[in-house]
Amino acid sequence: MTRIKERRLLALLGIGGVLVLAAIFVVLFPLLANSYTFLLKRGVELVTSMDWSPMMNQFGGLQFILGSLWVTFWSTLLATPLAVSLAVFASDLSPRRLRGLFGGLVDLIAAIPSVVYGYWGLMIFGPLLASTVYPLLQSAFSGVPLLSTLFSTNAITPQCFMTAVLVLALMITPYASAIIRNAYEMTPKDMIEAVYALGGSKWDAIKMTLSYIKSSILAGVIIAAGRALGETMAVTMLIGNSVGPFKPCLLCRGATITSIVVNEFQEAMMNPSHSEALTALIVILIAMGSVLLYLGRKISKNFVEAEIHA
């Protein structure tokens, strides 16, 4: 049988398709090409040691990896209740007439650049916390085992893990919320009506919906964590940029993979090992992010659409 020869159309569109495939290589190839010898030779040092001193040719980057995970963990933990609440509020509790406005506002907020969040945290939010909340936290938990280490530091500064964590939590909230909201609004209406038919209250209906979309919430949170992991400018501006060994502490200064790259890449251009080490850290970052993305998308496949809208 003869088919329409839409070959020319397909060829034209195919160029676009091939170039999209090329785009991922444009990202991955230069990164791998400029880090694999370093990873082969000194990869073990990079991921096990915490001695980072490019001048001394020491490239132990474990503290940055742990710093990234630490910041990601706490900001995701804090963002989750905010994101779930915001999703329920937006799709169930807010006045119907305001929903359009509300959606627009969230879109705008989600589009505020990372560097602007960073600057706000640097100038306003961080200093305020450092002069009010942080001392309180420190004294409140000073005697408590385990928790006291989280808040123990010699000197409270506006720039520390905690400030980065809080701003990051705020930044990923609209995003996670958009994914959760997508699932929330797709919940079958008859199920909710059944709750009411059984004499349930609004709260019962919300609880039922949330339990119905558990896996989407988990997926949304994991994908939001992936964004927190790769978040760069705000973290760099707020984390305090200390290259010393990692301590599981929230009021301490620290560094993440992204912050060390932003801070040192310019000077690293003079020193091949240094720039390769930083590139290798980016590769490790992408690998960690891929795991999160894989998990998140495996749990719930349906929200690539929500992801691009967020």
């Binding site: 999209v20 994908i223 964004r227 790259v261 980016i282």
Partner: peptide, 16 residues
């Protein structure tokens, strides 16, 4: 690509 950290794109283009 939507989820690739943007710093990665920057460093890649630096090398490329």
């Amino acid at each position: 690509l939507v989820e690739v950290p943007t710093i990665a794109a920057g460093i890649a283009i630096y090398w490329l």
